[in-house]
Design a binder for these strands. Sequence first.
DNA 1: GTTTAATCGAGACGGTACGTCTCGTCTTCCT
DNA 2: AGGAAGACGAGACGTACCGTCTCGATTAAAC
Lengths: 211, 211, 211, 211
Amino acid sequence: MCRPTSPKPVRTGRTGRPRSAEADSAILDATRAALVELGWSKLTMGDVATRAGVAKTTLYRRWTNKSELVVDAVAVLFDELELPDLGSLEADVRGVVLQFAALLERPEARTALMAVVAESTRDEALRGRIRTAIVERQKLLVLEGRARAQARGELPYEADEETAARNADLIFDVIAGAVVHRLLVSAEPVDETWAAGFTRLLLSGLASLQN
Amino acid sequence: MCRPTSPKPVRTGRTGRPRSAEADSAILDATRAALVELGWSKLTMGDVATRAGVAKTTLYRRWTNKSELVVDAVAVLFDELELPDLGSLEADVRGVVLQFAALLERPEARTALMAVVAESTRDEALRGRIRTAIVERQKLLVLEGRARAQARGELPYEADEETAARNADLIFDVIAGAVVHRLLVSAEPVDETWAAGFTRLLLSGLASLQN
Amino acid sequence: MCRPTSPKPVRTGRTGRPRSAEADSAILDATRAALVELGWSKLTMGDVATRAGVAKTTLYRRWTNKSELVVDAVAVLFDELELPDLGSLEADVRGVVLQFAALLERPEARTALMAVVAESTRDEALRGRIRTAIVERQKLLVLEGRARAQARGELPYEADEETAARNADLIFDVIAGAVVHRLLVSAEPVDETWAAGFTRLLLSGLASLQN
Amino acid sequence: MCRPTSPKPVRTGRTGRPRSAEADSAILDATRAALVELGWSKLTMGDVATRAGVAKTTLYRRWTNKSELVVDAVAVLFDELELPDLGSLEADVRGVVLQFAALLERPEARTALMAVVAESTRDEALRGRIRTAIVERQKLLVLEGRARAQARGELPYEADEETAARNADLIFDVIAGAVVHRLLVSAEPVDETWAAGFTRLLLSGLASLQN
DNA sequence: GTTTAATCGAGACGGTACGTCTCGTCTTCCT
DNA sequence: AGGAAGACGAGACGTACCGTCTCGATTAAAC
């Protein structure tokens, strides 16, 4: 999975010096590094600029504020999430749970995700950015997993399209929510045991959605 | 539910003028009010002090920083959560889900919870504070609900105490996580329909935990 | 030379616990010590209280502010100035110049004198306090020296009383002013050589005042 | 007399936005104004910044503290001192005495001079700043006056250069010291009568320095 | 090969909030 | 009643970042 990180409405003016592509990646790298070291609240634009060997102006030319910069810097981490076919729905779910947990163990990911979500409670635009950059991307995994399970005959095909969508959303929130909450709010580890227990609960539950 | 808010390691020294109890509550009220109006990032200590009719020093004498102040200010909101006996496990779960969702619709609660969780990813002490002030409190509801269901005969009594605890934790993270994620990350409403679907999924899943 | 340091209108009321006399001297000692270590601007009432093993309240009960406290604390230093009879007017003058210079070499004296004078440029009451506590005391030395010189026949007796007073004032300002200015503004040392030169200049000048 | 006020070790770096020259003079003007109104101790950096229409940071970028700012702001007042040729040494001395006294009647000058001298008793750097910004400037007047008197034949030319310098210093401290002490310590006016008396004393004394 | 125009770095700018400090007062308990 | 202890309202301190701005110096496409 890959996608262009084109933050600000680039003036398509022909003439003039073009923006440095190196700068962009240097900035995003610096942002992630700073995030790990300092956390969200201690991270400053000036520091990121210095680390990236870039002027503050260059940052502001591309991102309007800290939140947007961090979303872009971190979004790429969520692209790593994949759904390798492990042979059964149960294995697939357990796999994605552990994979997501591993991602959230990384300080830059956990810090950034929560910080950005927190910021978004007051910022509609940021909420949208999170949705497209992170949420929808993850939701695809749910759809993919379901399709695979249906092909395997583990799950029935749903007749009503709307119901199908609603169920996918529900499952997504249950999986992602449980993992995030366990790790970041309850502050307990997500290990094999927990993943197994959770998967058992979820799969049994899934049956009930079909009637 | 009520509990003393004793923020800083209070020197129990006998002598000297005692801290004003009025100030404490005025500050917490002011913090909640400011949080609603301004959100986490615009909330300033100086503003809180002004609103509370109190000097800035008085704030810092009690709380070392914004995060701790906000945790204490918001924790009381979570005390409102209750588990009225609605006659069945299913009704109880649906009730608590909607109640929790209603709480998170309130701007001060949603903003504060996420902001504080975000901050806590870098702050061990804050994490502890959140746990005792918010998490443990909510977890009691799960235990209460289970006990009630067991009394009704809807759920079996668990033989192994450790398993029982693990299951309670799991259920707690699934419920709280799903609601929070739906509301704050997916940014979709938690209505009767969703609550019903979620409850159905959860209850079916619960059966699997007994074997 | 000695004098009671009774700063504030002492309540002569019979009843109640009498004021600690020890406290007074402990405070003045602490003030001088703090002055040497910290200088005027870094000296704080709280610190003085702590050093003196006394509550801040006790300070404020006796002195209304920093300036008055310091004047009282330092005034005693100027009591040390004496005019031993060295046998001639010239020796007397040189002696008092060196003595005054030695006093102003002491950090607490130089710092306090200037600080208090500076403060007094805006404070009429403080100006009065300085005058009675320091200036008048020093001026007596000039009168004493003149009387002695007149007795020796080195100086004529002045007919007009007013002129006599005016001349004493002039000489006082010339001596004290020159020493203070040399030490604190020009920041050059007052040694035997300078004292000799200055004395020569002054004594020659004195002749002119008689016509 | 005029001179550039170059406060802080200015990085002569080529790049970056250059410092505003307007800001510098606006700040110094504001400082003098605030000094007149409020006096040294009530003068705050924030207030000066506001009056100057400048951010507090801009002040701190140029001056490390209040004292240095005030020295620079006030030094310019001492540039006003001049030595118009009044035809005789006696008239010249009396003129400069009255002129200096007039300067010290101005609240900003008297307050600032003393405050800064007081502060300098603990601050070597400030002492140096005062010396170059104020003292040396005034001392030139003494040299100029002597040269003029020598040209008129009122004073002999001094053979030994070192003695000449020492005498100039002595005279400077006597004049400046006497005026300052009379005005600020004794708190008596410097009028025509006093100036005449002082000048008479000084000129008679000067004769003695030649032998 | 100029011109042109947007980029770059550096760093000063007006702001705002921070968390600390000291002030002088007030309140409580203890002697 | 006096004193110590220490909390209180007030407000300045000096620092750190914010996001904007002015600089002179690149840099490439358009002429």
